[in-house]
Amino acid sequence: MADNHTIEPQVLPPNPEKATLEGRNKYLGFWFFLGGETVLFGSLFGTYLGLRGGTADGPGPSDLFHVDLVFIMTMLLLTSSLTSVFAIINMKRGNYKGLLLWMTATVVLGLAFLGFEIYEFYEYNHQGLGFGVSAFASAFYTLVGTHGAHVTFGVSWITVLLIRYRKSGLTLTNAPKFYTAVLYWHFIDVVWVFIFTVVYLLGIGG
């Protein structure tokens, strides 16, 4: 029952997230889950690509999208991925305070991203792109909105972890939890890179 106790940083195994069978299961299971999520987003991308021409006389991609806004959002999310990497580096060094600090930074950046996304949707709606106006509108909101829902879930998840484990120190139980949360966060980032390319760059360029 060693996993019950807080382990001092100096006796922590080098990869605390994979030191127990539970941790290894969680790690592998989460990778599989991300595989499924890939198909999920792949289906949404396919739908969007199939429907992005169907604007039905409503506003289209080139009327709406602006590179500057999306660039800021991209930078926020990419930076948040970087901060989560710093968090894991700190975890492996046994610096629990650093882990919490960098994870908090990740949450803040994620919230900022969400703020921009809400502003973006509000603005598009204002310009006549209601959810059911055209097939393009529905497909756009569904794809980008599903990503936004993932960001929201990720922010909430990490926040719960940060509050729950604010004083516990690093243990063999919470190390896999932080690690999988960061995996999830990277995945959301990668999806955004594709959204940036397929939705926005393609929308503005073509």
């Binding site: 739908t47 429907l51 169907g54 604007t55 039905a56 106006v133 097939a135 529905s138």
Partner: peptide, 8 residues
């Protein structure tokens, strides 16, 4: 009618 596609 709104640009959709049933084959999707």
């Amino acid at each position: 009618d709104l640009g959709g596609n049933v084959i999707i």
